[in-house]
């Protein structure tokens, strides 16, 4: 898990690589609904409310641990997004140095608070999405989106994009590996070669994408026809969904 290409492939393969645990057997719609609610509530915390944000961000890890999804696995995935957040947040630290009182005797510069808040929000939201992705395949998520009346072309686009990205990254990795095998002495790939590599990867992925689309059509895939809806959640699942969303709302507004 060292280079960005491997990371990207690992993210797209979250479902295949993760333990599915008991959540794997739950129908997709409740999971999608609870995850969306969590995301909305998690980003709704005010900029300076670090404590609440942090506690809320811990929820996916706790819930994951209960359902046998390792918190480390979630943390590892979530931390892949951190570099981007750190860049933005650190810059802000420099601009916003006005102290803000956190506890009676503790004041922290506003920029640092915002940075901490951003980090917590990132670790929380990305791990929540990872938890969903780990226990629900893209086919199931698509089915859940269909039953939420997301228009079919959008869902199909999502599915195809997902496959296309995975293919592109894998093609790119093959090309990079082949490059290294023939250039054993040089350590990195010179910048001037990257243009060719990326173009080649997209072309090859395009060819394979076409072949895949051919094969899909042969099995009667038709992007214009509505996707099949998933089996309806059982009443226990529906009840658990409502309770989980209420609990999230409760935690959001009654946490310190």
């Amino acid at each position: 898990m060292s280079n960005p290409l491997d990371n990207a492939i690992a993210v797209l393969r979250t479902h295949q690589d993760a333990e599915h645990g008991p959540l794997g057997a739950v129908s997709p719609l409740p999971k999608v609904l609870v995850t969306f609610s969590y995301l909305l509530l998690a980003v709704s915390f005010r900029m300076h409310d670090v404590l609440g944000t942090a506690l809320f961000a811990a929820l996916p890890y706790v819930f994951g641990a209960i359902c046998r999804i390792s918190p480390w696995f979630l943390l590892k995935r979530a931390s892949l997004a951190l570099p981007f957040v750190l860049c933005a947040g650190l810059a802000n630290c420099w601009f916003d140095r006005v102290p803000v009182a956190v506890l009676p005797h503790l004041a922290i510069p506003g920029g640092v608070l915002v940075l901490l808040g951003l980090v917590c929000k990132t670790l929380g939201t990305v791990s929540a999405v990872t938890l969903l992705a780990a226990t629900t395949s893209i086919t199931q998520i698509s089915a859940a989106l269909t039953s939420l009346h997301v228009p079919c072309p959008i869902v199909v686009q999502l599915q195809l994009l997902f496959r296309y990205l995975l293919l592109t990254f894998e093609e790119m990795r093959t090309i990079v590996t082949a490059y290294h095998l023939r250039a054993a002495s040089s350590r990195g790939i010179p910048l001037r070669h990257w243009g060719t590599i990326v173009t080649r990867a997209f072309l090859r992925a395009g060819n394979r994408g076409n072949a895949i689309y051919f094969a899909m059509q042969c099995r009667l895939f038709d992007a214009r026809r509505p996707l099949p809806k998933p089996a309806r959640p059982s009443w226990q699942e529906s009840l658990a969904t409502v309770l989980a969303i209420l609990a999230l709302v409760g935690l959001r507004y009654f946490l310190p």
């Binding site: 479902h15 295949q16 395949s137 893209i138 086919t139 496959r163 394979r208 072949a211 895949i212 051919f214 094969a215 899909m216 059509q217 042969c218 099995r219 009667l220 038709d222």
Partner: peptide, 22 residues
């Protein structure tokens, strides 16, 4: 559509045919 429901094809490149996750 009617023909593809009666005739199935196993492509040479299995990776082009298998594209779902599981």
């Amino acid at each position: 559509r009617a023909i593809r429901a009666r005739v199935g094809m196993v492509f040479q490149d299995a990776d082009a045919q298998l594209f779902n996750q599981s």
